[in-house]
Design a protein around this nucleic acid. Structure first.
Length: 240
DNA sequence: TCCTTCTAACGCTTCATGCT
DNA sequence: AGCATGAAGCGTTAGAAGGA
């Protein structure tokens, strides 16, 4: 467990209070339509992660500066005593790493404020769009294939499978200090939209999150949310 | 030969900027 | 105004290497 500064502790307390009543069951079509209505990243492949970001922006707006500080070309999601990022993570993915931000922007942010914060949503996601019906629906909503997708088809690359549903299982509040940077891995995030490589980002191993953990927010009954999924819906999806 | 693990490379969209 | 370009947001994923 990390021992945050008083200021970071206050950030976390505020965020916990504001995020307590978040909906936990996120249905693909429903969420994409909500994002579309808000005109917020509704075309994205990883709609569920943007939906979490959207929920955080709405919920934290009163007590956090949104968006956060801009350092170089990186803009962080929110700012209070330090800069904060909102991230979604699929807990049943085979890989337990979360991609963070640009390495130099994070170093600068930590040097300036003493720490960097992360609000990490662990989600149980359904990867069941094997027939790609959700993807087809999404593509139709977007008004057909994008230029990027046409290029992808020309490269004969396979489109990634879509998540059709996500259930929020837990929210972790992490702080990263200068000392912690050595614990993080790095990742080159591959091709950009124009095919060029991208600068390095930090990557966090979720198996070793202990030293960074400031606090967590778990729905009452813990992992009981799984049953809600399997039985086709709980009576109350505002259970966090 | 069939797993599991490791790691390099990839998937898709948005936004800002600058050129014509 | 419309388009191209580049940099960023969010996310894995495929395939090679290694072990049983």
């Amino acid at each position: 467990m990390a021992t945050p500064s008083g200021a970071v502790r206050e950030d976390v307390d505020a965020a916990k209070r504001l995020l307590r009543s978040l909906p936990t069951r996120w249905e693909g079509k429903d969420c994409v339509l909500k994002l579309k209505k808000a005109d917020y990243n509704w075309r994205q492949t990883e709609w569920w992660a943007f939906y979490f970001e959207f929920l955080c922006r709405e919920s934290l707006l009163k007590e956090f500066q949104i968006p956060g500080e801009r350092i170089g070309t990186t803009t962080f999601d929110a700012r209070r005593s330090v800069n904060w990022d909102f991230k979604g993570k699929a807990i049943r993915a085979d890989d337990h790493h979360a991609i963070l931000n640009d390495t130099s922007a994070m170093q600068t942010s930590i040097a300036k404020h003493g720490a960097h914060g992360m609000i990490l949503a662990l989600c149980d996601v359904e990867y069941n769009d094997v027939s790609r019906s959700f993807q087809r629906w999404h593509t139709r909503l977007k008004g057909g294939l994008s230029g990027y997708e046409r290029d992808r088809i020309a490269r004969t690359s396979i489109s990634r499978y879509r998540k059709t549903r996500a259930v929020l299982a837990e929210i972790l509040f992490l702080q990263i200090t200068h000392r912690d940077l050595a614990l993080l891995g790095t990742m080159r995030q591959g091709r950009n939209s124009n095919g060029r490589p991208r600068p390095e980002k930090y990557m966090l191993d979720l198996e070793r999150v202990g030293p960074l953990l400031v606090d967590r927010l778990t729905p009452p009954g813990g992992w009981r949310v799984r049953q809600d999924v399997e039985s086709g819906g709980g009576a109350d999806d505002r259970a966090v």
